[in-house]
């Protein structure tokens, strides 16, 4: 639905694990830090939950970039679940780079956003990076997928 969308900044969809990612977001919230309103968070149990197909769908449905936030290697609540997740996501970035969509469209943030100010930095920096990229529209052959 294309209404008066007040989202002018590049749109970021974040898959954040309940432990590191959401705690960082909560920290930023408690401090009332000022952030742009261009991102949405989908909480997941563990970053390993995030399918690459969901990331593809996100990029095809209006997001300009996707961040997957998880815990640092060695710190996953579910033993080593995030090891496989990191390998998978990095291989996916290779595909994004091969197709010239650009590996910047996926930001892998494992252990770099678990405090308020870190979370804020990640969002601000990524917004800047995405602004430099060409629009993603040509890759999506129809707008019917949005709504």
């Amino acid at each position: 639905m294309v209404e008066e969308t007040t989202v002018r900044e590049p749109k970021i969809l974040i898959f954040a694990c309940r432990w590191c990612g959401l705690i960082g977001a909560d920290g930023a919230g408690k401090k009332r830090m000022s952030l742009p309103a261009n991102f949405r968070i989908i909480p997941v149990e563990c970053a390993a939950f995030v399918e690459t197909d969901a990331i593809i769908r996100a990029l095809a449905s209006g997001s300009d970039g996707v961040i997957v936030m998880g815990c640092h290697v060695g710190g996953c609540r579910f033993n080593d679940a995030n090891h496989a997740a990191i390998k998978r996501l990095e291989l996916f970035q290779v595909l994004l780079e091969a197709t010239a969509i650009g590996k910047e469209r996926l930001l892998i943030s494992f252990g770099t956003a678990h405090e308020g100010h870190q979370f804020s930095d990640v969002i601000q920096n990524y917004t800047t990076v995405l602004r430099e990229l060409p629009p993603i529209d040509p890759w999506i052959s129809t707008l019917s997928v949005r709504r």
């Binding site: 007040t6 909560d26 930023a28 919230g29 830090m33 000022s34």
Partner: peptide
């Protein structure tokens, strides 16, 4: 979460915050 995750961090952007909160609730 529309407080820590929306209202408190987008105090400068009430339009954007409202739109975002609506999106989040829809989700």
């Amino acid at each position: 979460d529309i407080r820590e995750g929306c209202a408190w961090i987008h105090q400068d952007e009430p339009e954007g915050a409202t739109f975002k909160a609506w999106n989040l609730i829809d989700m």
